[in-house]
């Protein structure tokens, strides 16, 4: 995973060597790509530094004059419950991720290791389900939630969110687990280990990088999709997640753009910290030395 493509040292193998022309081309490509990805963020950040008046001045100045972090202070005053929205978002995403992991890890293992009737069918169904976004099924889901009495609770946002993330998570983790050599299961069986012991002591540790990838994907997925469910299944302000909370900056007369941008960055920060923390555990090559390939 930590493969270096641009090793200039002499130890780099032939296939990783590029001429200076190719290097320039590659970096230009990366720069263009990055620019498209990052431009909105850069502009957003610059906006958050400007006083509100400057945003509507013409001609529009891209760089902030006498910019300050004032918006990062006033945002908490304009929308006092913003902290609550961040907490809600994190809570919904974290709980969804935990639920997904608890269900998906054993399921992926079963799909990777065992053969059973109807397996292809179930896997195909998962794939089909993950092609729908939750949005398509909002109305039936709404009726379901109402019947179950889950409207206007945290569950209304957690349960459908987790449900829609499970299929793709199973596919992802199953692929990873299929790469764990089955000989390890046989060896553990020969050593007297039960299926569950083998799963806990052998498979889980080896699958850890895969599980973390799934955790990150699920967390991001839950973070991104929660606002659909929040808007539809929840009308209580105190349960609203961050994306909905950001609407609070849309005032009656005007939108407080600089505070909105500041709030967006502040709101993302905790999620970034969590993802950064998780990906430190992404170490490759965990199966090295298990079997002779």
């Amino acid at each position: 995973m930590a493969r270096k493509f641009f090793k200039s040292s002499e130890t780099s193998i032939m296939i990783n060597r590029y001429s200076w022309r190719e290097l320039i081309g590659i970096y230009c490509g990366i720069a263009v790509f990055l620019f498209f990805m990052l431009a909105p963020f850069i502009e957003g950040f610059l906006v958050s530094l400007k006083p509100l008046a400057q945003l509507f001045s013409s001609p529009y100045s891209f760089w902030p004059e006498n910019g300050s972090f004032e918006a990062y202070r006033t945002m908490w005053i304009s929308v006092p419950s913003f902290g609550r929205y961040i907490f809600n978002s994190l809570l919904i995403s974290v709980v969804s991720t935990i639920i997904v992991l608890i269900l998906v890890v054993p399921a992926a293992y079963a799909f990777a290791r065992f053969r059973f009737k109807g397996m292809a069918l179930v896997l195909g169904a998962f794939l089909a389900v993950s092609m729908f976004s939750g949005a398509v099924l909002l109305i039936p889901l709404f009726r379901l939630m109402r019947t179950l009495g889950l409207l206007n609770t945290y569950y209304a946002m957690i349960v459908p969110g987790a449900a829609f993330l499970i299929p793709s998570a199973i596919w992802l983790l199953r692929t990873y687990m299929m790469r764990i050599p089955p000989e390890l299961n046989e060896a553990a069986y020969m050593d007297g280990a039960s299926q569950f012991y083998t799963f806990r002591r052998v498979i889980l540790p080896i699958a850890r990088p895969g599980i973390i990838v799934v955790a990150i994907m699920t967390f991001i997925g839950a973070y991104a999709q929660q606002f659909i469910f929040a808007l539809t299944f929840n009308s209580k302000t105190e349960y609203m997640p961050l994306p909905v909370g950001l609407f609070a900056y849309f005032g009656k007369q005007e939108v407080i753009w600089n505070e909105l941008m500041a709030a967006s960055f502040v709101g993302i920060a905790p999620a970034m910290v969590i993802i950064f923390f998780l990906q430190r555990y992404l170490v490759g090559g965990l199966t090295a030395g298990a079997i002779k390939e």
Binding site: E186, V202, T287, I291
Partner: peptide, 8 residues
């Protein structure tokens, strides 16, 4: 086992 099957 031929492939060792060690716990990596």
């Amino acid at each position: 086992f031929q492939s060792y099957a060690l716990y990596p």
